[in-house]
Nucleic acid binder design. Structure first.
Lengths: 317, 317
DNA sequence: GCATTGAGGTCAGAAAGTGTCCGCAAGCCA
DNA sequence: TGGCTTGCGGACACTTTCTGACCTCAATGC
C-alpha cells in the first residue's frame, strides 16, 4: 500500500532533518520493527541515496551526499527561504543566474501551498530591490506568473504598454522568459496577431493564467534567446566606463564585486572598467572608495561626478 | 519492493517537471499499465499531493499546490540555483532572512552531490558580495561548514583570531549560528575551556568537520540568540543617520528599499533615517539622489560627505 | 570481556501490488 | 445528437512484496 512509500518519505525527511539518528528511534518514529527499518534503509541505498551507518553504542544512521539529489523534503520555513532566495536571485542579485533562478522559482512556487505563497508575498517589501537593481523595479509576482505559464504551457492574458501607444490587452502562448541586458523579455506567440512577439516584462501588467493549455510551437531557429537578440535592432544605450584610481586593485575589486573589472596598472594604482546605463552607479563607487581618480571615459561621467560632488559639498556645509 | 516507491518518486518528478501529462504517456514512461498509473495517482492524492485530472481528448494529469510541500525533485541546475539563491540571501541580501537561509542552505548543501558543490564553489566569484554587503566579506563556505556542523551535531575545529591576540586553534561543540547586527556569530561549547563561548565568524578560518558527534548541551536560558545578546557587553558602534532631503519621499523610498525609512515632512521634502555602522553608505545615497539635503545627525556624516564631495570634484576636474 | 547497536539470513503469514476486463462518466468535436 | 477520446474505479485472480519474529554475526566503545 501507500504505507511503504509514505514511510520511505518520512524516513528521508527524518534523515534530512537531523542528520544523525539511532536506529531504535527511527524505528519508533516510523512505527515499525528495527528489522523493517534496516530494510527501509537498504531500499534508500538501492535508490541511490547513501545512508551511512555506524555501530556500537551511540551508533546510528546518517544521510550522506550521493550521486543524485535526493527528494528534498522541506518544512515551511525552508520552503519560504528557498523561494525568497530564488526571487532575489531572479531579480538580478546574482549576475547570470536570473534565468535558471526564475525557472526553479516557477517550479517551487507552483508546488507551494497557498498559505506559504501568502507568506512570501507578504515579504515583498522586505525584499524590496532597493539600491541593488539599477534596472527597473520588477514585480516578482508578475515574473513568476509568466514563468508558471511558460512551464505549464498555459495561454496567458495581460495588459501591455508598448513604448509608443496605448496599453492594450494581449493574449499569447508564452514560450520563454529571457533576461537580456538588465531586462526581462517574454518571447511568445501572439494569438491575436498570429506571429512571434517579444514583450518587455516591465511593461506588462496583470498577467492572468487562463488555464487553457496549448501545444508549444517551435520558434524559428529553435533558440528563443538568439531569436530575441536578433530581433532587438538596437540595444539600450550604455556607457563604457574607464577610470584610473590611485589605490591598490584589491579593495576596489572586493568592493565592486562582479559589477566591473579591475586591472592593476602600476603599484598603488589600477584601472576600473564597467559597463552601465546609469552613471550614478560608478560615481557612487568613486565616492565611497575615496581615492584620487582620473576619468578616462565617458565624458558624461566627469560631468556627473562634478554635479554629485557639488551636491554633497552643499549639503555638508 | 522498492519498485513502487521508486516509481512514485519518478511520477512525482514527472508531474513536477512538465506540469501536464496525458495518462497514457505517464503509464508508458513508468512502464506500467494505465490502471496501475491511476492507482499511483490515487496514492499520491492519499499522501496529500493533489493531482488534478481532466478527461476528454487531450486530457491528462497535473500536480497542483496542496496543503503540504511535496518532496522537491530537482535536477542539477535547479539545485544549484537554489543553493546560490540561498547563499546570497544568507550573505545578507535579504534582511531578516539570514538565519533561515543559512539553515536551509546547510540542508541543501549537505545533500548535494560533490559535483554540484564544486559547481557552486566555482560560482563564488560570480556571486561576490560586491557593494551590497557593507559588512565584512564573509566566505559562504565557512558559513555553510559551520552550519552543517551545527546541524549534524559534529565537533568542529577551526582557527580563531580574537580581537587582541594571536590566532589559535579551537575545538568546540557548535551549537548555533546567530546573525546579530551585521555579523554572524557562532555560539558553541568550547571543549578546551569547558565553557560556552561565542565566535565571530569573520574572524574564524579553516573550519573542519571532525566527524565526531556529540550530544548537544543545553545553553543557559535555552535561547542562543538571547544568550549572545546578553553576553555582548557592547554592540558595535552605530550611527543613527537622519537627513532631510528636498525631494519627494517616493523616489527615495524606492531607492533605498528596506535599508532605511523615509517619512514625508512637507510637500517636496522628506526625512530619511537609517542605522548603519558605515557612513559611506548614506553618503552614496545622498550623492546618487542628487537632491539638496540637510544633515541632522550624526555630525560625522557631514565630515564624510564633505570629504567624498571633494574627492569627486578633484577627480572630475 | 561486555553491552550496545547495526547487518542480514530465514520463515510463514499477511498485505500489497498488478494486469485484465468491464461498464461508466466527462469533455470535445463534427 | 452521436461518436471518439480519456479518465474512473470495481472485481477478480495471480504474483510479489512486506513484515515481524527469531537467530547469529560483526563492529564499536568502555
Amino acid at each position: 500500500m501507500a504505507n511503504t512509500s509514505a514511510r520511505m518519505l518520512r524516513l528521508l525527511s527524518l534523515l534530512q532533518t537531523h542528520r544523525y539518528w539511532p536506529g531504535s528511534e527511527l524505528a519508533g518514529r516510523l512505527d515499525v520493527s528495527p528489522r523493517t527499518l534496516r530494510r527501509d534503509v537498504d531500499r534508500l541505498r538501492e535508490l541511490g541515496y547513501p545512508v551511512d551507518a555506524s555501530r556500537g553504542v551511540a551508533g546510528g544512521y546518517q544521510l550522506q551526499a550521493g550521486a543524485a539529489v535526493p527528494p528534498l523534503l522541506l518544512d515551511d520555513d525552508e520552503a519560504v527561504a528557498i523561494a525568497i532566495g530564488l526571487r532575489t536571485a531572479a531579480a538580478g542579485a546574482v549576475a547570470g543566474f536570473e534565468e535558471t533562478s526564475v525557472r526553479a522559482l516557477a517550479k517551487v512556487i507552483q508546488l507551494l501551498p497557498p498559505r506559504l505563497r501568502r507568506r512570501i508575498d507578504a515579504l515583498r517589501e522586505v525584499t524590496a530591490p532597493g539600491v541593488l537593481g539599477g534596472g527597473p523595479t520588477l514585480d516578482a509576482g508578475v515574473l513568476t506568473t509568466i514563468a508558471m505559464a511558460c512551464r505549464g504551457e498555459e495561454r496567458l492574458r495581460f495588459d501591455y504598454a508598448p513604448r509608443d501607444g496605448e496599453p492594450a490587452a494581449r493574449f499569447v502562448e508564452p514560450h520563454r522568459l529571457v533576461p537580456l541586458g538588465r531586462r526581462w523579455y517574454l518571447v511568445a506567440w501572439d494569438l491575436d496577431r498570429g506571429d512571434w512577439r517579444s514583450f518587455r516584462v516591465d511593461r506588462l501588467a496583470a498577467p492572468a493564467l487562463t488555464g487553457a493549455r496549448f501545444r508549444p510551437r517551435e520558434i524559428p531557429g529553435g533558440d528563443p534567446a538568439a531569436w530575441l537578440r536578433a530581433r532587438m535592432t538596437r540595444i539600450p544605450a550604455r556607457y563604457d566606463v574607464s577610470v584610473v584610481l590611485e589605490i591598490d586593485a584589491e579593495p576596489v575589486r572586493a568592493f565592486i564585486g562582479h559589477y566591473g573589472t579591475v586591472e592593476e596598472t602600476t603599484a598603488g594604482s589600477c584601472r576600473m572598467r564597467m559597463s552601465t546605463d546609469d552613471l550614478g552607479w560608478p560615481v557612487m563607487v568613486l565616492g565611497v572608495l575615496g581615492a584620487a581618480f582620473t576619468i578616462e571615459s565617458p565624458p558624461e561621467l566627469r560631468e556627473r561626478a562634478r554635479a554629485t560632488g557639488e551636491t554633497l559639498l552643499r549639503g555638508a556645509s
